[in-house]
Each structure stands twice: as C-alpha cells, then as structure tokens.
Amino acid sequence: MESLGDLLKSWPTGQKITDQAEQKLAELMADPLVARLLDKHPELDEQAVRLNLNRVYQYVTEYRNCTNCPGLEKCPNDFEGHYTLLSCETVNDQPQIYDRKVSCKKFIARRNEDQIKSRIRSFYVDETALQNGYSADEILFKDPKRTEAAYQILDYIVRTKEAGLQQEGLYLAGTFGTGKTFLMCYLLHELAKAGFSGAIVYMPEFVEDLKSMMHEPGKLRETVEMMKETDLLIFDDIGAENLNPWVRDHVLGSILNYRMNRKPTLYTSNYGLDALEQHFSFTSKDGDERHKGQRLMDRIRPYVQVVMVTGDNKRGRK
C-alpha cells in the first residue's frame, strides 16, 4: 500500500505541494471515519490530525481496503491480514495519536485453522478429509443409516472436551465406504480445536513403510515415539494390512502396550473384534500363532467402545 509520504514525494515541489497537502487534509477531515474518530476523542482537533497526517491517512485507507476485502491472499494493506487502529492519549495537555496493527477476522480464522492442522499428523491418509470443513448436520444427516454411529462419535467428542482424554477409545466397524474414516477425521478435527493432538494412520501403507524403516532406526524410533505420545491415535483400516511378526509384536505391540491406561487409541476396520483377532493370529512368515494374536487383542478389546457404522457405500459417488 502506498503511504501518504510516498504520495507526497511524487507530487511537484513548492507551493503546489502545499496546496495538495492541504487538499488531502481537507478530504481526511471530511471523511466519515475521521469524523467518528473526532467524536470519540473530542480532545483532537485539526492540528492534531495535521501532525499525524500519515497515520490518519493509513487508518482511513486500510479501513476502506478491509471494507472491500479482496481476500486474505490479495490483502493490499502493509501487513497481510492486519489493519491500522488509532487511539489517543493526552500527554502534557497535548493530544497524541498512536497507531497499532490489529489482526482482521480472516487472518485470525486462518491462524486458528493452521493451529488446528498443526495438532494433527496424517500418515498415508488423504489429507483433503482433514482440510475440508465439517458441520454437525453433515455428520448426522448425510446418511440416515449411520446416524446412530454419528451420535456416538459426537458424544465421545463432548465427553473428551468436558472431562479430558478418555481411557477408552472407539472401534468403528462396518463394511466398505460407509464413512468410518470421515467420522474419525471429524473427531480429530473437533478435538484439535479443543487443543488435543492427534494422528491418523492408514494401516496397509504404514505397515509396508515400516518394513523399510527397519534400516532407518532413527526414523523408526521417532515415528513410534510420536504414536505413543500423541493424545489421540487412530489406526485406519486396521486388519487390511499384510502383517509380519516383527510389525505385530515389536511395533504395534509396543505402541499399544504404552498407550494402555494412558491415552485412547481409536480404530476403523471392516472386521469385528473376533475377526481382527484371527487376522493378528496369522502371519505369512510364521503361520498360525493364536496366542500372539490374542495378546495383541488384549491391548485393544478392553480399551475400546465398539461402534457399528452402517450405510451405503459412498466411494466413487459424486
């Protein structure tokens, strides 16, 4: 934005510049915004405005810019998403005008949204599900068949906001495309707004990536520690991964063992709990190991509320 000083520099010198400066002062004094400023601070007079011409000019110009806001990305003000606000104090019987920069509503909204997003980590999950806005009406009524499950999600969110992290997580079970991941992303987004951190992990791709991390112990340790410590951990589509004993016993087992009685772990799956136990009991390397599957389930089953998500398959629909 061009300041009044820059504007004056572009004018001719001599008497003409004085005349144009007086004209600009007259325009400012006639501006309704300046009139409101003078009404609010009757101690101000034309001389005070004259001595602070640049401040008052910027105040008026930025207010007009905000009134006709072209959007945060095209903000014409000196500092994106901020406008000048004037205040007045009397010092030694002389009125003094002070200016300060104030964040606009759009800037505050974007900053708040950035803070929300910074609390959520996503591993192999389509981030558009986390970036899109949500509404309770959409959650409840987009598919009447899943309304009961949606109410249980909303109840969990309310309980967590009111009482803090729950010891019990959620286990969303249901057929393909009923919106289990969508509901979990909504839960993460709402609780991130309340200050909780979270991570959502798409299990099939995560397990494949873990195998390559065997050769990167630093990265593996950092990932596992983050999943242990985050407030809310969601394993998305658990049961669809191709497990090996190391992932099951040393990675998943370690994460779940740490989180028991500390922080809730949540899941989405096409399997019920009994079917998931059978899945964990068999690996391509060691075959049937029922006791190891049961041991892992002992870290899941007692710590979740099962929510059945019914409805139509929405994948591929426009």
Rank of each mutant, 00 (worst) to 15 (best):
residue 262 R to M: 07
residue 130 L to K: 08
residue 198 G to Y: 13
residue 238 I to R: 06
residue 238 I to G: 03
residue 236 D to K: 09
residue 194 A to H: 11
residue 219 K to G: 00
residue 214 M to P: 00
residue 126 D to M: 08
residue 124 Y to H: 15
residue 228 K to P: 02
residue 120 I to W: 10
residue 146 R to T: 01
residue 161 K to C: 12
residue 244 N to C: 04
residue 167 Q to E: 13
residue 183 L to H: 08
residue 181 T to N: 07
residue 204 P to K: 08
residue 246 W to Q: 01
residue 154 L to F: 09
residue 195 G to A: 07
residue 170 L to C: 02
residue 190 E to M: 14
residue 225 E to R: 15
residue 180 K to Y: 08
residue 188 L to G: 03
residue 194 A to N: 09
residue 182 F to E: 01
residue 140 L to W: 06
residue 114 D to F: 10
residue 165 L to Q: 03
residue 248 R to D: 02
residue 192 A to R: 05
residue 151 Y to C: 05
residue 143 D to F: 11
residue 141 F to L: 07
residue 203 M to W: 10
residue 156 Y to K: 13
residue 247 V to Y: 05
residue 227 M to I: 02
residue 173 A to P: 00
residue 240 A to Q: 09
residue 166 Q to M: 11
residue 196 F to K: 09
residue 149 A to D: 05
residue 151 Y to G: 00
residue 171 Y to C: 05
residue 122 S to H: 06
residue 142 K to F: 12
residue 117 K to E: 08
residue 184 M to C: 10
residue 236 D to E: 08
residue 243 L to M: 13
residue 143 D to W: 11
residue 175 T to A: 13
residue 129 A to S: 11
residue 181 T to P: 04
residue 132 N to C: 14
residue 246 W to T: 04
residue 257 N to Y: 14
residue 253 G to H: 12
residue 234 I to K: 07
residue 176 F to G: 00
residue 192 A to V: 05
residue 128 T to K: 15
residue 219 K to C: 00
residue 243 L to F: 15
residue 152 Q to H: 14
residue 118 S to D: 11
residue 247 V to S: 14
residue 229 E to G: 01
residue 224 V to Y: 06
residue 237 D to H: 11
residue 126 D to H: 11
residue 261 N to C: 04
residue 194 A to K: 12
residue 202 Y to Q: 10
residue 207 V to Q: 04
residue 240 A to H: 07
residue 157 I to Y: 07
residue 218 G to L: 15
residue 259 R to E: 04
residue 125 V to P: 08
residue 180 K to V: 04
residue 190 E to R: 14
residue 253 G to S: 08
residue 119 R to G: 02
residue 199 A to L: 09
residue 173 A to E: 13
residue 200 I to R: 02
residue 182 F to I: 01
residue 176 F to I: 08
residue 155 D to K: 15
residue 118 S to R: 15
residue 185 C to G: 00
residue 204 P to D: 00
residue 226 M to H: 14
residue 228 K to T: 02
residue 249 D to F: 12
residue 251 V to T: 09
residue 124 Y to T: 01
residue 183 L to Y: 15
residue 116 I to W: 03
residue 240 A to R: 13
residue 193 K to W: 03
residue 203 M to Q: 06
residue 250 H to N: 14
residue 122 S to I: 14
residue 141 F to C: 02
residue 195 G to L: 05
residue 245 P to G: 01
residue 257 N to C: 03
residue 130 L to N: 06
residue 179 G to A: 07
residue 255 I to E: 01
residue 145 K to F: 11
residue 151 Y to Q: 14
residue 207 V to S: 05
residue 197 S to M: 06
residue 150 A to E: 02
residue 247 V to M: 03
residue 221 R to Q: 15
residue 261 N to Q: 13
residue 202 Y to M: 05
residue 242 N to A: 12
residue 220 L to C: 02
residue 194 A to P: 09
residue 196 F to L: 07
residue 151 Y to I: 01
residue 167 Q to Y: 13
residue 226 M to V: 03
residue 118 S to Q: 12
residue 155 D to H: 14
residue 123 F to N: 02
residue 201 V to K: 04
residue 193 K to L: 07
residue 121 R to F: 09
residue 153 I to D: 08
residue 129 A to I: 12
residue 222 E to S: 12
residue 136 A to Y: 12
residue 219 K to A: 12
residue 148 E to G: 04
residue 242 N to P: 00
residue 164 G to H: 10
residue 126 D to C: 07
residue 134 Y to K: 06
residue 141 F to V: 00
residue 182 F to A: 00
residue 158 V to D: 09
residue 227 M to K: 09
residue 254 S to I: 04
